[in-house]
Design a protein around this nucleic acid. Structure first.
Lengths: 199, 199
DNA sequence: ATTACTGTACCGTCCGGACGGTATAGCCGT
DNA sequence: ACGGCTATACCGTCCGGACGGTACAGTAAT
């Protein structure tokens, strides 16, 4: 019990780093073990199979992201669209520092995603369920649903494109893009009614 | 030479179908061969290695998408933002039917992407280069660059989320979302102008 | 004769997973 | 305070199987 939770986290960190550095195909028990400074047997003691490591990755990512989301949500923003804005911030600014510096959720999602798609697609189900929930929440967030959805999609597109190197942006441009996304998530005026509009 | 190009396409189709149906991990030479109704030797006659199949997938996808993009671009839209709108349409409505019905570029990109990430990440380079180019073109398209970029990202986010089942939308909602994206790509100036109604 | 394959056999490598063993630490009755 | 027992946390090895790739002999149509 003493170090169990710690070692599990260490193994997941190693798996994550491995996928990010060497690609999803490099996610093997032996490599994870070496990265974590354990033996293969040691890794299998904590996770009974490779699929369970991937599952662990997905579940941990959900925990981290929801924690971050909650944090952003608590920050005294009461105008309509607050959930959507919290999602934007958690997606794009969100960090969860493990001893050193910053790590975006994008990296975490990406690693889990690649790992899951390459070895155990069914372990994405919990993440899909969360996404469905987030989507529902953002649709009832005071913004026009289509608008909120576009904002959500732009966030997904951003971290995803960044990680794949698809039309990557300069830091300067990225900042203005994030601003624009937040602006679209703040639009109460014009196009969106705030009085009679919604029943 | 005559049937060579045809068989190459058949092999690529099979690889694509395989990835889409059974996941990237199932992309093996033997399975591709069986899917295509060839022998392993026959497949290797056309593609010297598995990596070359993946490369072929990426290259063909680029050809298809650019052809579609060109088509949409030719359609007498001369207002600022035409390239951006063409990109939206090619991404989200774009189809390239091979005998039957419709196939979105999303599917094609996704298959190539998964295959590449799982087995030969370096074969994504050509696609990354194209994306960089499209990004540059859309930034000089008459729209505010940050706006055009958000539109681009929302497109990427949409097909990507759809294929992964992340917060998927009803057909009805999807339609309004696409409309909203196009609306954002039509905005010449003045932040958000107006209008909730449609023609 | 060339092109476009089929079919079979084979090699070296790597992988997931099972298994047996080990070191350590803690509790328990005496 | 001792020996006995158990649980935790690993290590190292082994194995069956799959995969990428090679080689090569044969075939059928052009």
């Amino acid at each position: 019990m003493t170090s169990s939770a710690h070692t599990r986290d260490l193994i997941l960190d190693s798996a994550e780093a491995l996928v990010l550095r060497d690609g999803a195909a490099s996610l093997t028990l032996e490599r994870v073990a070496r990265e974590a400074g354990l033996s293969k047997g040691g890794v299998l003691y904590h996770f009974a199979s490779k699929a369970q490591i991937v599952q662990g990755l997905v579940e941990r990512l959900i925990r981290h992201f929801e924690a971050d989301l909650g944090q952003y949500l608590r920050k005294t923003d009461t105008r309509p669209g607050r959930r959507t804005r919290a999602f934007v911030r958690a997606s794009l600014e969100g960090s969860w520092d493990r001893k050193t510096g910053v790590r975006s959720h994008g990296l975490e999602i990406f690693a889990a995603l690649m790992a899951a798609l390459a070895t155990a697609p069914e372990s994405l189900v919990p993440l899909q369920q969360r996404y469905a929930r987030w989507q529902r929440e953002m649709e009832r967030d005071g913004l026009e649903p289509a608008r909120a959805t576009v904002v959500r999609l732009a966030c997904d597109g951003l971290w995803f494109s960044e990680l794949l190197g698809f039309g990557s942006l300069s830091p300067r441009r990225r900042a203005t893009v994030v601003q624009e996304i937040l602006r679209l998530a703040s639009q109460d005026e014009a196009g969106v009614s705030r009085k009679a509009g919604r029943a």
